[in-house]
């Protein structure tokens, strides 16, 4: 392998009592890329991240981050990584500038470069006008920018971002991701967890976690290309009867209603899927329109988590039109 691996872990596991939060996870994350963890809440994203930066002790398995053995050499690692916790973790009762100054000293930035680095960071993340403002009064997007600024002040080689964009407006999220790509361009490796599909699609590499198990690990494009299902859009006069008819077929793996349309994932076992759907639904609706469409990362996610979490038949596949999972 010619690409330098920044994070490597083998058979990483962690349990809390009887709950297996992370289950024999193998990871290999290359340098200078954005690597995403996609999964619903409780899928082990945070636990994995915390183990990788030495905050949690693994129950078993080996971890090597930036050539250091974790958790044994966690203290040495702390100088080289930046971390953004899921919950805003800077001090609400300090000003923006004070928070950054605190972080600069906490990371032993030399006196001369300190002021310069803070000024650079403030302008990079458009925080200059907010310098003197009390951190607790910032908006969600501003807090998130400040968190990233604080995490990158000491120029870490590796960034851990634990659901950095939850509760932030779409425009702020877009800007945030632009900043991430700029950081990667500077040579930083970023590990980010998310439950937004659009964000997952922007990562270089993506691991889908479900109940502590890695169910997929590829680039988003490959994941979409390799999806084990045919995807169709179905339009008709009335959606509900179509849904009920589709639910009777074991070959329909998932369906999602989008307004007056249905998005259906059909098993690859069916040789001629469009005919299959036509035959299944024609008796219900005469004005039926069935169109094959390309899969999305959400379809990949649904497929990846399908086997691990069989839904009760009655509720099978009726998901609402939501771009993220709560």
């Amino acid at each position: 392998m010619n690409v330098e691996q920044v994070i490597q872990c083998r058979q990483l596991s962690r349990s809390f009592g009887s709950l297996q939060a992370v289950d024999h996870l193998n990871l290999s994350i290359p340098k200078q890329s954005i690597y995403g963890f996609l999964g619903p809440n409780g899928s082990g994203k945070s636990t994995t991240m915390r183990m990788l930066c030495g905050l949690l002790t693994p129950s078993s398995g080996q971890v090597e981050v930036l050539g250091l053995e974790i958790p044994r050499q966690a203290e040495q690692l702390k100088h080289q990584i930046g971390y953004m916790a899921q919950k805003f973790a800077l001090y609400d009762d300090l000003t923006v500038a004070e928070n950054l100054s605190f972080m600069a000293k906490a990371y032993n930035l030399p006196g001369k470069t300190q002021a310069q680095r803070i000024a650079e960071t403030l302008s990079r993340y458009a925080l200059q006008p907010l310098q003197k403002q009390m951190t607790g009064t910032l908006s969600g997007g501003q807090k998130q920018r400040l968190s990233l600024a604080a995490a990158t002040l000491h120029k870490p080689k590796l960034l851990f971002l634990d659901e950095p964009t939850s509760g932030v407006d779409p425009q702020s999220r877009r800007n945030f991701w632009e900043s991430l790509f700029e950081l990667v361009n500077d040579g930083v490796t970023i590990l980010v967890s998310t439950h937004y599909m659009d964000e997952a699609e922007r990562c270089h590499g993506l691991a889908i976690l479900d109940h502590g198990v890695k169910v997929a690990d590829e680039s988003p494009a490959n994941l979409i290309a390799q999806i084990d299902a045919s995807v169709f859009q179905i339009e008709g006069t009335s959606i509900m009867p179509l849904k009920h008819q589709l639910a009777t077929s074991p070959e329909v793996l998932s369906m999602m209603q989008l307004g007056e349309r249905l998005r259906v994932l059909l098993s690859k076992k069916i040789a001629n899927p469009q005919d299959y759907l036509q035959r299944l639904l024609a008796p219900i609706d005469q004005s039926l329109r069935i169109t094959p469409i390309t899969a999305s990362i959400e379809d990949v996610f649904v497929m990846a988590t399908l086997h691990r979490q069989p839904m009760p038949p009655a509720e099978k596949s009726v998901t609402t039109n939501a771009s993220h999972f709560q």
């Binding site: 203290e75 916790a85 919950k87 973790a89």
Partner: peptide, 14 residues
């Protein structure tokens, strides 16, 4: 309680 500790223990502060 305020969530600052998670950040604090991720810095080199001993």
């Amino acid at each position: 309680e305020k969530g600052n500790l998670e950040l604090l223990i991720n810095t080199p502060i001993t």
